[in-house]
Every structure is written in C-alpha cells, then in structure tokens.
Amino acid sequence: MPEVIFPGPEGRLEGRYHPQKERDAPIAIILHPHPQFGGTMNNKVVYNLHYAFHKMGFTVLRFNFRGVGRSQGEYDQGIGELSDAASALDYLQSMNNNSKHCWVAGFSFGAWIGMQLLMRRPEITGFVSVSPPANMYDFSFLAPCPSSGLVINGTADKVAPPSDTTALVNKLKEQKGITISHEEVEGAGHFFEEPYMETMISSVSGYVKRRLTETSR
C-alpha cells in the first residue's frame, strides 16, 4: 500500500493510500485516536477499519495528524487536526473525482474530529464513529447531524463510558431525516482488544454494506 505525503495546513502530512481499480469507487477517510496518548494511523482499530473499507470496495486514506510520525506541525487541541482532516479529504477527492460516495470513519478522538468534518462537508454520505469520547468532548455541534451513520462502542469501555455514548446517540436520534444506528460490543473495552476486534469490524462492515446496497437500488 503506497505511502503518500500530501500538503496540510502546517506542512506535509503522511498517509497510507489504498486505491481501487474502479474509477468511481466510493472513498473513505479514517481518523486516528488522540495524538498525545500514542494515537497514530497505525493504531489497530484504525488499521482494521482501513482494510475493512478497502475490502468493501472503497478507495481508502488514513493519515497521521500534525506532529505525529512524519507529519509536520504540532498538536493543536483538535482545531488544527480538523483542518488536517479537511486537507486529507481534499487530497482524496482530488484523485477520485468520479466517486459517488464519501465516508468518514474515526476512532475515539478521531471520531470527534470525524463528526466535526461531517458538519463542514455536505458531500459526506455516511460515517462510522468508533468509541466516541462523549464524556470528554462536546458533541452539541451536531445540530442537526447532516448524515446517517453508525456509532459503535464496547460495553466495558472505561475511557468513554457507554452511558455517555448512549446519551449522545439518543440526542442524535431525535433529529428528523437521518438514521443513527447504535451497536454495542458486549464485553469490549475502548480499544476492542481481542477477541472483540473481529466482532466490531464485522458490525461496521455489515452496516456499511447495507447502506451501500440501499443507495444503489
């Protein structure tokens, strides 16, 4: 899978780009967890999401936020990271301008950034939020949430308690015109350590495939 370097707001950003042969393949961007707590694009959840989307026929990009790995710049409280994500999406779109579907998937801190990106980019048709830290970050900007998506978390998550995630989902579900699906992986912690990773990826794949089938009818 080719390593790519593309321009970001604070210098170059490092990513992994995995294209499909079909020119109109759907595209997906995958966002990693908190840079100050060891989050990188090679995080296991991010890596597995990347390959799951590629397996489903998506052209996929994951990348390191500013200050992580070979990406330039330094941590910016989520503000700069949102700009990084927008630049990554620009880069992905510039190489796939025939794509009809655009998805964003994020894990933990990346889920928070992904949901903000969703608000800025009307072309995003679906999202996957894995372990969104609703206890740490304010998600009230999702008013209204512009597209349907999946929120998935573990019932034994000690980093982002399930009760906060459920409260977030219930709030989003009150909005008309979109459908928020919520799945919980019984016994899984924040990072979906084995044997839970497979269950989580299988749930995500099942959801995305259903959505793609619905839109292609």
Rank of each mutant, 00 (worst) to 15 (best):
D76M: 11
G39K: 05
F139H: 00
D84N: 10
Y137V: 05
I113R: 01
R210I: 12
R211A: 09
T166Q: 11
M95P: 09
T179M: 13
V185N: 04
V185K: 04
Y17D: 08
L89I: 04
G78D: 07
D76V: 06
E123P: 13
F191S: 06
G78P: 06
S108F: 00
P146D: 08
Y196I: 04
K176Y: 10
R62I: 05
T155H: 08
G114E: 02
K21F: 14
I201V: 13
Y17G: 07
D90C: 06
V68H: 02
A105S: 08
N98F: 14
E193S: 15
P161L: 02
S94T: 08
E183T: 12
Y51C: 11
V46Y: 05
P7M: 07
N43C: 15
G149M: 02
V68F: 13
S203D: 15
V104M: 02
G187Q: 02
E194N: 11
A188L: 08
L117I: 02
S163F: 11
L142D: 01
S83V: 10
R66M: 10
M56C: 14
S205M: 12
E74P: 06
S99D: 00
L13C: 06
E184T: 08
G38W: 13
M41F: 00
F192Y: 10
I113A: 08
A160G: 01
I180P: 04
S108L: 04
E22G: 11
S163K: 13
G110Y: 02
Y17A: 07
G110K: 03
Q116V: 00
K21N: 12
M200F: 00
A85T: 03
G206F: 07
F139E: 00
H32S: 11
P9W: 05
L49R: 04
K209W: 07
N170C: 08
P33K: 05
W112P: 00
D76N: 13
G11C: 11
Q93I: 12
F192P: 00
K158M: 12
V159K: 03
S147K: 04
A105Q: 05
T215K: 09
L117Q: 02
S148W: 06
R121V: 09
A105G: 09
V208D: 01
V159Q: 04
P132A: 04
K173G: 15
